[in-house]
Simulated scan of single mutants.
Amino acid sequence: MDRTLSAPGKLFLSGEFAVLWGGEARIVGIGPRAHAFVRSRDDRRVDIVLAGGRLSGHATPAGVRWAAPVTDDFKFVSVAVDLAYRLSGVEGPGFSVAFEPSPLVNGHKLGIGSSARAAVLAVEAARHALGATWDTLKLSLLAHADAQNGKGSGADVAASFAGGVVRYRRFDASTLLTAAARGGLVSAVEQSQPVHLARMGEPVFTMIYAFSGKSASTTGLVKEVERRLDVEARKRFVDRSDAHSEALEHGLLRRDFDAVKSASGALQALLWELEVTRTDELERILGIARTFGCGGKQSGAGGGDGAILFAPDESTATQLIESLSARDFVAFRVNPERGLQGEVTRHPLLSSWLDAVD
């Protein structure tokens, strides 16, 4: 049985660092969407197909026995598929799944959560192929954490799964990671706490994403920030971030643009205090936004990627995008996208990739 799946990318509205230390993040699922195409098999072979190649293996109750070393391009999806078989505890059937490439700008990722989205799509593809009933969000969070040696907040996974605008607190995957390594994964998943995820209303003001021109190294930035801040300093940071985030949400939902500008500015000032997130490109983007009376802040860890900008009306948004584009920044409107879903039509490119390997 064949199935096409799709999921959105993500942008942080607030809480990029706070969510790592117990705070709340507000995130939005955005386009462009990415697709995966899964095809069930009658044997135990498992194929993962990307634009750059293929990884194959054989399904076992203890995971997938890959026929070749797993390279970085396949890391997140291969971990997700391997965990799926371990959670199912079955030898098969196998399946083949192809993934659409994430969009690049001048060879750089846009910073909208491509690895998280790939993990979500891989888990859902396996669930469909195996006829399983597991919690796709929870297993995706586990897979994404496992592929990063327990690092990351999982906020991008939550946004890609749920879509729309959501509040999220970090899911503690440590017990599941231990069970995945030592055994007892099924019972650990069944006994694990629910994911803290709640829907927000959709913002009433136009949102714009402006890409800085280079990708951020999130892991390195987080490591440096955590080296600088002790536990008490992180707690104070979280308290301030959560307060400004709540003010931003209220402004976005209550049509109070002055509150949106004030809260987004306060959130950015707080992030600048971390010292390592600032770049000339981000400062330029935010400076240009201010000249049009718009608000905004970096979206993500900083040191690259881009900024989420808020415009009071469509006319101002158009002028801001034109100004940013004239200065060689990639900028576009963003609207909340639906979360993970199955599609009614066959994906022609991805299905042709699977035809070529069958």
Rank of each mutant, 00 (worst) to 15 (best):
Q191T: 13
K75R: 15
A122L: 04
G52Q: 13
G15Q: 13
A7Y: 03
N149F: 09
R45C: 10
F99R: 06
V19D: 01
L55K: 01
S114E: 10
A159R: 01
R117A: 02
V238F: 13
G201F: 02
P336K: 05
T71I: 00
A62P: 00
G131K: 01
P61T: 08
P93N: 14
V238Q: 10
K109L: 06
R236V: 12
A301P: 10
R255T: 01
V344G: 13
R26F: 11
A145T: 07
D82M: 05
K109V: 02
G213A: 07
G300E: 07
H128K: 01
V189L: 08
A34M: 13
N106D: 15
G339M: 07
A301H: 07
E246P: 03
L282Y: 07
T316E: 03
R240D: 11
A129Y: 02
E100A: 13
L121E: 04
A143F: 00
F329W: 08
V64P: 12
L349G: 10
G296N: 11
S88A: 15
D42Q: 12
P203F: 10
E24I: 10
T178I: 05
G53P: 01
G164I: 06
M200I: 09
S323W: 01
L324W: 13
P69S: 07
A317Q: 12
V157L: 01
S174W: 05
Q268R: 14
Q298G: 12
T178K: 14
S78K: 02
A162E: 03
A243P: 11
D280Y: 00
G183E: 01
A119N: 02
L221I: 15
V260F: 12
V189P: 13
R41M: 10
H108Q: 14
E249T: 15
A116F: 06
A84I: 05
V28Y: 00
F17N: 07
G89E: 08
D239K: 08
L110Q: 04
R346T: 15
V195L: 10
F205M: 06
A119Q: 02
R228P: 00
E100P: 00
E246S: 12
T71W: 00
G306L: 05
V204L: 13
A118H: 06
C294N: 11
A143S: 13
I285G: 04
S114F: 05
S88T: 01
V90R: 11
L139N: 03
L267V: 00
A326F: 05
L141Q: 11
S187K: 15
A173F: 04
A143N: 05
P312A: 09
R327M: 14
V357M: 00
A289Q: 14
G220T: 06
R234T: 04
G22Y: 06
P69L: 07
T206N: 09
R290W: 02
G296K: 14
